[in-house]
Design a protein around this nucleic acid. Structure first.
Lengths: 148, 148
DNA sequence: CTCCTTTTTTAGAACCATTCTAAATTGAGA
DNA sequence: TCTCAATTTAGAATGGTTCTAAAAAAGGAG
């Protein structure tokens, strides 16, 4: 079982168990399958896509399990919720800090590396997270010369 | 009818009609009431709050009208949708560029002024908008010394 | 102003992503 | 292996948003 493109890591289910235990996360079969899908397919999936894909390996999995575990991963800092689309959320296991660009035409989300300094405090508020989002028209849609 | 705090402008319904016509937006009674509420109460409202407040002046207004007009204002660049909360969106008529800070404890959203340069292009994508969001624990909750 | 056409509004139903419920199962430690 | 708490499951429920069809309103032309 080998991890695709964006990462050079090889990840089997033993490795996934180790990752979960490392974070004091209880190891369960659905949890491993969901995390495996997320780590092996860096595609900014929706919950529905995750459900459909995990169901291929685990035919009895339910939506509740998918959502429970996505929220669980978010609480445990393994995953981030990305709210760029009007009607649905996508999820991101990306490890290093990066920003996102969403194309207003095709709705595709691209990762953008960035190095903006995250302040520790602003106006007395403690800052623990920062996100930078861009939108516009993507390279591919620009080539298409389609009007908006 | 005088606009509150964040703005020094005075806005009556004639002025609101003018603002709408200026943008080639058809003028209707619900549209004016909604815009008036947004401009006079810079509080990052939810659709539900807008509905409740507008209903005070326009008892027969429906949710469909609220949502139709919020989407209409967004299309016409009078309004921005802010998706920082897990379960709902809030709206922002703020004119000058600013970022947002959301408190993970009380969920309050604060405006934060900023001056980050918005690039015109990144990796071949045309950039038309940029948003910067911070999260953490707000000043007020920090004072409360409440654990998380 | 009146007529006409198009857009908007309304009330209520429908939709659909997500969460909840209660019972069954599983995981991990004793 | 036993036990208990956490998780999973199927299906129902929830709740924010959109849709539907009919009525009303806006705005231009005459």
């Amino acid at each position: 079982m080998v991890l695709k493109k964006e990462s050079g890591l090889k990840i089997d289910e033993k490795e996934l168990s180790r990752i979960l235990r490392e974070r004091n996360c209880k190891v369960t079969v659905p949890r491993i399958k969901i995390l495996k899908y997320l780590l092996m397919n860096r595609v900014h999936p929706t919950a529905e896509l995750i459900y459909r894909e995990v169901k291929k390996e685990l035919p009895k999995v339910s939506y509740a399990t998918i959502y429970n575990n996505l929220n669980y991963f978010i609480e445990n800092n393994l995953l981030k919720r990305i709210r760029l689309h009007k009607d649905y959320d996508i999820f991101d296991v990306g490890t290093h800090m990066h920003s996102h660009f969403i194309c207003k035409k095709c709705n595709k989300v691209y990762d953008i590396p960035y190095e903006i300094h995250q302040p520790k405090k602003i106006k007395g508020h403690l800052i623990t997270d920062m996100s930078v989002n861009f939108s516009g028209i993507c390279k591919t849609c620009l080539k298409g010369k389609i009007k908006f």
